[in-house]
Design a protein around this nucleic acid. Sequence first.
DNA 1: TTAAACTTTCAAAACTTTTTGAAAATAAAA
DNA 2: TTTTATTTTCAAAAAGTTTTGAAAGTTTAA
Lengths: 167, 167
Amino acid sequence: MNLEEAKYKFIQEWGVLGSTWGINRAMAQIHAFLMLSPESKTTDEVMEALKISRGNANMNMRALIDWGLVYKEYKPGERKEYFYAEKDLWNVMKQIAKERRKREIVPIREVLKEVSIAEIENTAEGKEFKKVTKDIDAIISKFDGLIEMASKSDKNWFLKALTKLIK
Amino acid sequence: MNLEEAKYKFIQEWGVLGSTWGINRAMAQIHAFLMLSPESKTTDEVMEALKISRGNANMNMRALIDWGLVYKEYKPGERKEYFYAEKDLWNVMKQIAKERRKREIVPIREVLKEVSIAEIENTAEGKEFKKVTKDIDAIISKFDGLIEMASKSDKNWFLKALTKLIK
DNA sequence: TTAAACTTTCAAAACTTTTTGAAAATAAAA
DNA sequence: TTTTATTTTCAAAAAGTTTTGAAAGTTTAA
């Protein structure tokens, strides 16, 4: 396997992985392509490399910038915009976690809060409802705390803590 | 808000959450419905409660069983099958993590392994490729270890360790 | 056996998401 | 200015996913 094949393989798989992570295929592939590239790239280079349309490239690039996974750069004397990726996977994961926290954890916690103050009858059904939703809230809030912690803490500290936990 | 409204709200939101977690809406809603129910339920009750077709109920119920999130039960003297959910969110998350590990982490690690033995030229491009993929492998293997650890360890031990880590 | 109760399957329909490409908008150069 | 380069938008098309419902399959009871 040579570099081109290896790059292709990695980009494809990163696309598949992304699509199970709330990041669509094109978006994840663009990110992979930019991560692997030592130089920042233009929209045209991305279109060419991934064989996607201008509209698609533009929209997903902007989504990536929104998520904090890609940055824009202007080169002196050049009119084109250049893009480069966040390459530190720790930062990538932190950004994704932050974004997903906002989209997923915050809404479910809101619902859990709302239902926790509902007037629930004291039947078997009602008791079960209270028990289950309370348990869920307990675990979700723990994870929420973990994400908040991770996004504030230093990479090495956190990784060391994890390593300790694992071994 | 009364019990019916609260249940409805929770089931809807669990459906939305599920669909960002590789569990489709109907599947997540069935799981929510069963979690909230103190008694096991039949396919017909699920269909009626969630207003979905028999085919849909059947397929997703089996997917839930596959994922280890729902169990089947036979009641003496009854011909219908009854279903009940795994209610401990810890076990639910463990199961989901296991399943996703198989579907996501294993394939990307395989690709990373394959490309790591590729013959990569010593150009800027090649060096960047090696560096980025090596970094990614390092972090992913750490998370892989964490999941493996979590799925083997006792719930309370792990939650305590997390709590310690957080505060 | 046969009939009734129940579960499974799967092609087609409905719905959702992603992608395209060309037109509109914007910015820089002539 | 006007022209040219570049980016953005968005309606329509394509692709992907989920749902339906009826027919086929299976199991149990009579």
